[in-house]
């Protein structure tokens, strides 16, 4: 039509958006097997951002409903489009299967600084062990902020991957959980946590276990505490009492003073 080289030159300046750009805008979702039923997982180019149950026993209804709740929950929280993914992000399935998610990238941009610190601290709790809320508060340098830790964990965007189910009440009860208290208990038992024993210990006012062979005092589920034979095992109510008896805190579970 026109042979004006300037107009032809301008028309040639059009360029398509690079292929990867959509992934900077939209998140992707998959439905995969979790340790206790299937879960919906949303992830961005920065990592996994949101995990929710796909089969919610309290909301029996068509499959589509659970998906819709997940999508709407994600939208409220992140304000980002959510599209179906063709495959789960690398490392997600092993992390869910083994309960070890240390190497998985997480996108915690939606969290407050305090919440991110709490989540990072909780990420380090190994499978098969539990820590009291006060332990987390001490880890983030705010020993008085036990309730704030509870709220931060209640709002955990990525349960299972940040194992907030491994933060339990000092009295040996599992306590509240994003997916419900019953699921928390089921998860912990599946990971080999002996909740009945923790309750018995708490009833006897024992919150720390020490070994007179190593001179070390631990939280009861620490893998070092589990190795103590009954003959050498001593229970304590407070860390101060264990300290006066000559025990030093374990460097693995790093017990803090206010478990009870």
């Amino acid at each position: 039509m026109t042979h004006d080289p300037l107009l032809a030159g301008l028309a040639a300046l059009a360029a398509d958006a690079p292929d990867g750009l959509l992934d900077r805008i939209a998140a992707r979702w998959v439905r995969v097997a979790g340790p206790v039923g299937e879960v919906f997982v949303a992830f961005t180019d920065e990592g996994v951002a949101y995990v929710r149950e796909a089969d919610e026993p309290m909301h029996a209804g068509p499959d589509d409903d659970a998906r819709r709740r997940f999508t709407e929950g994600f939208r409220r929280r992140f304000g980002r489009p959510l599209l179906a993914a063709t495959r789960p992000p690398a490392g997600l399935l092993p992390a869910l299967r083994t309960g070890r998610s240390g190497g998985l990238r997480l996108d915690l941009r939606g969290a407050t600084d305090f919440q991110r610190e709490v989540l990072e601290a909780v990420r380090g709790i190994p499978r098969g062990e539990v820590r009291p809320y006060s332990w987390v508060a001490a880890r983030v340098g705010r020993p008085g902020a036990v309730r704030a830790v509870g709220s931060a964990l209640a709002g955990n965007p990525v349960p299972l991957l940040v194992p907030c189910h491994r933060v339990t009440r000092a009295d040996g009860e599992a306590g509240e959980y994003v997916f419900g208290a019953a699921t928390k208990e089921r998860l912990l038992r599946a990971e080999g946590v002996d909740l009945d024993r923790l309750r018995r210990l708490a009833k006897d006012r024992v919150f720390y276990l020490a070994s007179d062979t190593t001179g070390v005092v631990c939280l009861p589920t620490c893998h070092n505490a589990r190795r103590i034979t009954p003959a050498h095992r001593h229970g304590f109510r407070t860390l101060a009492e264990a300290g006066s008896a000559g025990y030093r805190p374990c460097r693995t579970c790093r017990p803090t003073g206010l478990a009870a």
Binding site: L13, A14, A15, D16, A17, L21, L22, I25, A26
Partner: peptide, 11 residues
């Protein structure tokens, strides 16, 4: 929306 207009917006 993205598929239909990505080129125009990006250009």
């Amino acid at each position: 929306l993205y598929g239909a207009h990505r080129g125009v917006v990006f250009s």
